[in-house]
């Protein structure tokens, strides 16, 4: 398969105005991913599926990820002239990153037997604007998995044919996989609690 940079260049050439970013990955494998904007997501997805050199016809894994508000510390080396001598010192900058929800697609090609290409979509925030375009029209494999992301994370997929709760019951109001979800407190009888359960059981056994 082509490298991610080549794919990015080709996508940008095919859709002028599309904003495509490469998200780095600090891990051992270093599998980087493509971040696509909402307006062009469907076009890009179709391009990836139809392009004869890519033919990513198989969306294997679709999932949501929750990123809370965070403070990101970045270390940079800067050159500064201190007392007439130029030295390199480390400077730490802090940046507030507002939280967002993310949908990750792992794409493979069954025809050409390569992959994966990781595609990401991000919502504007975690509250009232948790929307992304649905890619179910392009890959049917995403149908249930996007429903699951809606159910557990509250990500609304515009254009999904049947967006309902899938795992929890319909009356359920919370989005349990979010990091700030508070589970119902039913730890009133714990004969042998330890660790986390002990902390939860203690609320019921005040001395």
């Amino acid at each position: 398969m082509e490298t991610l940079d080549q794919i990015k260049a080709r996508v940008e050439a095919a859709f002028p105005g599309a904003s495509v970013e490469i998200v780095p990955n600090a891990g051992v494998g270093g599998q980087r991913s493509l971040l696509v904007d909402h307006a062009h997501a469907l076009d890009v997805a179709r391009f990836l599926r139809e392009d004869p050199a890519l033919r990513l016809d198989y969306a294997s894994n679709v999932t949501g990820v929750d990123w809370l508000d965070a403070v990101i510390k970045e270390k940079r080396k800067v050159k500064q002239v201190i007392a007439g001598v130029e030295r390199e010192i480390e400077e730490t900058t802090e940046r507030r990153r507002p939280g967002y929800l993310e949908v990750v697609y792992h794409l493979y090609s069954m025809e050409l037997k390569h992959g994966p290409l990781v595609l990401r979509l991000r919502t504007a925030n975690r509250a009232d604007n948790a929307r992304v375009p649905s890619l179910t029209p392009v890959w049917r494999a995403a149908e249930f998995q996007e429903r699951e992301a809606y159910d557990l994370y509250g990500i609304i997929f515009d254009g999904h044919p049947d967006l309902r709760r899938i795992l929890m019951w319909d009356e359920f109001r919370d989005f349990p996989m979010r990091k700030d979800y508070v589970e119902p407190d039913d730890y009133e009888y714990e004969p042998t609690p330890h660790d986390d359960v002990l902390a939860k059981a203690k609320r019921h056994y005040q001395p």
């Binding site: 600090a26 294997s60 792992h106």
Partner: peptide, 22 residues
């Protein structure tokens, strides 16, 4: 493990079983 993300998959008897870890 170091920060990063990974997707690992095998052919389980039922199909592709994958784990996606961040």
């Amino acid at each position: 493990p170091r920060a990063g993300e990974v997707y690992g998959r095998i052919e389980s008897p039922k199909g592709e079983l994958g784990f996606y870890l961040i």
